[in-house]
């Protein structure tokens, strides 16, 4: 073997290693790229309740589109993300053994756990038309503002977070508030 000459073994080895790196690259960058290339939102009827999961439903606000990447309905829990123009309207239902105060505290900590985010203003008591009682507050982050509402119903917590630019929020929040008031918990009868 001459100095600096690439042997057949080295070439095969190089090709094999490039194949491994390419497959890994396909997983790491190819799948996310394909995901981004596919449309993430889908139309959703806004004239009837949408089942979020865990026995909770909500009537989406007018103009809302379903974000498929963060919407996962389930029997015990569920998440739905609506996009109302540039505003994110996220509702999450999770099993929870605790008081409303503890549930609010938990969400507040998660919000302020994000770098640059803080809770603003005072919290208010709210209720849905179906009688669910909850607590509402506000938060702000880099270039964004937001609103959170927490309900507790039958060992489940229902967390609502709305976020967007202040101007968009001011315009869209009334419709989202009306939607949040339609939150309803109706568990499946035990079979």
């Amino acid at each position: 073997m001459g100095m600096g000459r690439v042997t057949r073994r080295q070439l095969t080895n190089l090709l094999g290693a490039c194949g491994v790196a390419a497959t890994l690259g396909g997983l790491t960058f190819g799948l996310p790229a394909l995901n981004h290339a596919l449309p993430a939102d889908r139309a959703v009827p806004t004239d009837r309740p949408y089942d979020i999961g865990g026995g909770v439903s909500v009537v989406p606000p007018p103009g809302a589109r379903l974000d498929l990447t963060d919407t996962r309905p389930g029997e015990e829990s569920g998440t739905v993300l609506f996009r109302v123009g540039p505003v994110r309207y996220l509702i999450s239902v999770q099993p929870f053994d605790g008081s409303l105060g503890a549930a609010v505290d938990r969400l507040r900590r998660r919000i302020t756990g994000n770098s640059g985010y803080q809770v603003t203003g005072t919290e208010l008591s709210v209720a849905t038309t179906d009688g669910l009682r909850g607590v509402q507050g506000g938060f702000s982050g880099p270039g964004r503002g937001g609103r959170y509402v927490v309900f507790v119903a039958d060992s489940r917590t229902i967390e609502v977070t709305v976020s967007g630019a202040d101007l968009d929020l001011g315009r869209i929040l009334p419709a989202i508030n009306r939607s949040t008031a339609t939150l309803r918990y109706a568990p499946e009868p035990a079979g």
Binding site: L31, P32, L34, N35, A40, L68, T69, R72
Partner: peptide, 9 residues
Amino acid sequence: GALDDIIAK
């Protein structure tokens, strides 16, 4: 995460 989203889409 991406493949999970692709399945949803």
